[in-house]
Simulated scan of single mutants.
Amino acid sequence: MKRRSYRLAIAAVIFALPPSLAHAQSADLVLCDRIAADTSDPDKPADVKGVAEIAPADIPTAIKFCKQASGASRRAMYQLGRAYAADRQTPQAIAAWRKAADKGSTSAMVELGVLFGTGAGVAKDEAQARKLFERAAEAGNPRGVTNLAALGGNAAPSDPSRARELLAKAAETNAEAQYQLGLMLADGTGGAKDEAGARALFEKAAAQNHPGALLQMGAFAEAGRGGPKDSAAARAYYQRAADLGDDDAKKALRRMECPLAIKDKRGNLVTNLCF
């Protein structure tokens, strides 16, 4: 009876630990995600917005909290690499991405592949870059797919048809893959041109607030590509993309508001006429 009471007492002590101790790791990860999550990372939770680039003012905070969270999270380890890279600490970024890649982070594989492919911070090695892109692509990472398809040279010929196949698999759930596959369908890269199919993919990605897809939906709706022409819808898509900071969308809105362009005799834009 005493032994049982002793065990219950231990359990009571464990459950009575302050929340700050019990959830310190998850709190670190939340803060790491908030300022350093990559918008295109397949590991990113759906409720995390992510950032295209870590703001300079957030870099020290990102390094601190991502480092604290990295022991239990490959996503945090990858994001720690992003923070080091943003701070131009390339050796530290590479070390973090290696660890994240070893844990299965496909985004870390892509970043390492880019470094090997360009020779930035490491000896240039296209064969190693290809291996990393292939691992990421086979796991469904859209950037891995597109980088693999784009990697030139005799050791790694471009294969857009294979890129289509891999993107099609990833596009079942991933907005970036939907966007990238949509671009290939729209241009007829790697297979038949299919503007209706491209528009459907852009629409799916736009529903997830993908800036590029919002811009494409605006262009397709404005021109009537792959579906009905709808100026109001085009303007709405452009506005959503502009609100996310897309400069091309801002230009498109300006063009729609001021459709007539006044140019000089050399063809240079002087001004637009607005109505």
Score class of each variant (00 low, 15 high):
Met1Ile: 12
Arg3Thr: 13
Arg3His: 13
Arg4His: 12
Arg4Met: 11
Ser5Glu: 14
Arg7Pro: 03
Ala9Ile: 14
Ala9Gln: 14
Ile10Asn: 03
Ile10Arg: 14
Ala11His: 07
Ala16Trp: 07
Ser20Ala: 15
Leu21Pro: 07
Leu31Asn: 09
Arg34Met: 10
Asp38Lys: 04
Ser40Arg: 15
Ala46Thr: 12
Ala46Glu: 15
Val48Met: 00
Val48Glu: 00
Val51Lys: 05
Ala52Gln: 09
Ala57Thr: 10
Thr61Asp: 12
Ile63Trp: 00
Lys64Trp: 07
Phe65Lys: 15
Lys67Phe: 13
Gln68Ser: 15
Ala69Tyr: 00
Ala69Phe: 02
Ala69Gln: 05
Arg75Leu: 11
Met77Pro: 04
Met77Thr: 11
Gly81His: 05
Ala85Tyr: 07
Asp87Cys: 05
Asp87Phe: 05
Arg88Ala: 11
Pro91His: 12
Gln92Lys: 10
Gln92Thr: 10
Ala93Val: 04
Ala93Gly: 08
Trp97Asn: 00
Arg98Gln: 15
Lys99Ser: 11
Ala101Gln: 05
Ala101Lys: 04
Lys103Asn: 14
Gly104Cys: 01
Ser107Pro: 04
Ser107Asp: 10
Ser107His: 07
Glu111Cys: 06
Phe116Thr: 01
Gly117Asn: 03
Gly117Cys: 06
Thr118Gln: 12
Ala120Pro: 06
Ala123Arg: 14
Glu126Gly: 09
Ala127Gln: 10
Ala127Ile: 11
Arg130Leu: 09
Lys131Trp: 09
Phe133Gln: 04
Glu134Ala: 14
Arg135Met: 14
Ala136Thr: 07
Ala136Gln: 01
Ala137Trp: 02
Ala137Phe: 06
Gly144Val: 05
Val145Asp: 04
Thr146Asn: 02
Gly152Gln: 15
Asn154Asp: 10
Ala156His: 12
Ala156Arg: 05
Pro157Tyr: 05
Ser161Ile: 12
Arg162Val: 05
Arg164Leu: 00
Arg164Cys: 00
Arg164Gln: 01
Lys169Asp: 10
Ala170Asn: 00
Thr173Ile: 12
Thr173Phe: 08
Asn174Glu: 08
Ala177Ile: 08
Tyr179Ala: 09
Tyr179Gly: 03
Gly182Phe: 06
Met184Asp: 00
Ala186Cys: 06
Ala192Gly: 13
Ala192Thr: 11
Asp194Pro: 04
Gly197Ala: 04
Ala198Pro: 01
Ala198Gly: 05
Arg199Asp: 00
Arg199Lys: 07
Leu201Pro: 00
Glu203Arg: 08
Ala205Leu: 02
Ala206Gln: 06
Gln208Tyr: 02
Pro211Met: 04
Pro211Val: 02
Gly212Tyr: 04
Ala213Pro: 02
Leu214Ser: 00
Glu222Pro: 03
Ala223Tyr: 08
Gly226Leu: 07
Pro228Ser: 12
Lys229Asp: 07
Asp230Pro: 01
Ala232His: 11
Ala233His: 10
Ala233Thr: 13
Ala233Asp: 10
Ala241Pro: 03
Ala242Ile: 11
Leu244Ser: 01
Leu244Glu: 07
Gly245Glu: 07
Asp246Leu: 15
Ala249Arg: 06
Lys250Gly: 03
Arg254Trp: 09
Met256Arg: 03
Met256Ile: 01
Met256Ala: 06
Cys258Ser: 01
Pro259Arg: 09
Ile262Ser: 09
Arg266Asp: 13
Leu269Ala: 02
Leu269Ile: 15
Leu269Met: 08
Cys274Pro: 08
Phe275Glu: 14
